[in-house]
Each structure stands twice: as C-alpha cells, then as structure tokens.
C-alpha cells in the first residue's frame, strides 16, 4: 500500500460517481446517436506504470488507439485512451450518422473518441462541481498491435497511475470499444481531496 492508494470508502465513492456519470453519458449518447449505448461497469485500479504496460498489453490485439488529454480545476487531469478492435472500426461512420465518403476511417475514430470521452467526462465533472477542458484528440497508432506498439514508445513520467476502464457497447451495431482513463500520480492526490470533501458532505 502506498500513500496514493484509495481506501475502501474513497474507492466506493469514486465508483458511485463514475456509475452516475456513466448513466447520464449513456443517456445523452443514445439520444445523439439514436441507438442504445451501454457502458459496462468500470474497473478501477491503481497500477504502477511498469505493470500498466503489461495490463494494457493484455487487451486484445487492438488496431487503433486515440488519446485525448483532459484538464479541470483543482488539479484534476489525465489522459483518456480509446482502444478499438479491428472488427469494430468498420461501422463507426454509420453509428455517427455520416455518409461513408464524408470522412476517413481515421477521422471517424477520432470523432467518436472525442464524443465518448468528452460526454462522459463532462457529466463526471458536473458530479464533482468541476469543468473540463480538452486537448484535441490524436490518433496514436493504427494497425495491428497498435496498443503494444504505442506502449513500447511510451515513456512514463510518473510511477503510479489510477486506471479506470469502461467498456462501451452499441448493440445495434455490435460495436465495442474500451475507454481507459489514466490519472497520473500527481493528480491522484487531488482526486482524493475531492472525494474526501464529497464524503464529508455526505
């Protein structure tokens, strides 16, 4: 146990905040995309950045990873990785309501990633009386073993990270993707402070 570990109450509280945000995000996305979007119960874990490579590597062979940084008040910040599998990248244009020739697959991936990330984080931010700003999303890599290749090139500048993984499912299109929120060590303390405040108000 390090000083950064969330205790049981903090973990439960964060889980609850995320659950509520997932519910609202799923509702908003369903209305915008005109199809049901399921967000699967997240896994929350603290990982050392060295084991992070391994745990992310175990994800199935991914074909595309899109990264988008987020930044809020009170030192809440991190990076959202959207991880796509090969079979799922074909139908994104349909889900988004674009015509096939209107945009490239890369642009579809980035567009959808941005929508999923910002919709979820906006409602999450509301839960904690915060407001997020976002970087432009970037396609980190695409092709076979995209995530593995990306992780190889990654140099971490912190030892620990809080990892929240949420799986999105659009059943009408049998589409799945994973959103992995990574919150760096320095921001975990800030998140804990926010959680403690909410717990105290409770």
């Amino acid at each position: 146990m390090t000083a950064f570990n969330l205790n049981e109450d903090q973990q439960d509280c964060l889980q609850e905040l995320i659950n509520v945000a997932m519910g609202q995000a799923s509702d908003q996305l369903a209305r915008y995309l005109d199809t049901f979007v399921h967000l699967r119960v997240p896994s929350i874990e603290q990982v050392s950045t060295t084991s992070l490579s391994n745990s992310l590597n175990k994800e199935q062979q991914s074909v595309a990873v899109v990264s988008q940084g987020f930044l809020g008040y009170e030192g809440i910040r991190g990076e959202a990785l959207l991880v796509y599998q090969h079979k799922d990248s074909d139908c994104i244009g349909n889900i988004l309501g674009y015509e096939p020739d209107e945009l490239s697959v890369e642009e579809q991936l980035i567009d959808l990633s941005s929508i999923l990330t910002t919709t979820f984080l906006n409602v999450f931010a509301l839960q904690i009386d915060n407001q997020m700003s976002y970087n432009a999303p970037r396609l980190l890599s695409s092709g076979q073993d995209a995530l593995a290749v990306y992780l190889q090139q990654l140099s971490f500048n912190c030892d620990m990270a809080l990892k929240v993984k949420i799986t999105y499912q659009v059943t009408d299109y049998s589409f799945n993707c994973d959103m992995i929120l990574l919150i760096p060590e320095s921001a975990i303390t800030n998140i804990k402070a926010v959680i403690d405040r909410i717990l105290a108000d409770y």
Binding site: Q28, L29, Y32, I110, S114, I115
Partner: peptide, 9 residues
C-alpha cells in the same frame, strides 16, 4: 446536443 467540444485536425 452533447454540449461538448469537437475537433478537426
């Protein structure tokens, strides 16, 4: 509709 920013690179 989503009240979110959107990007185009």
């Amino acid at each position: 509709q989503l009240n979110t920013p959107s990007f185009c690179s």
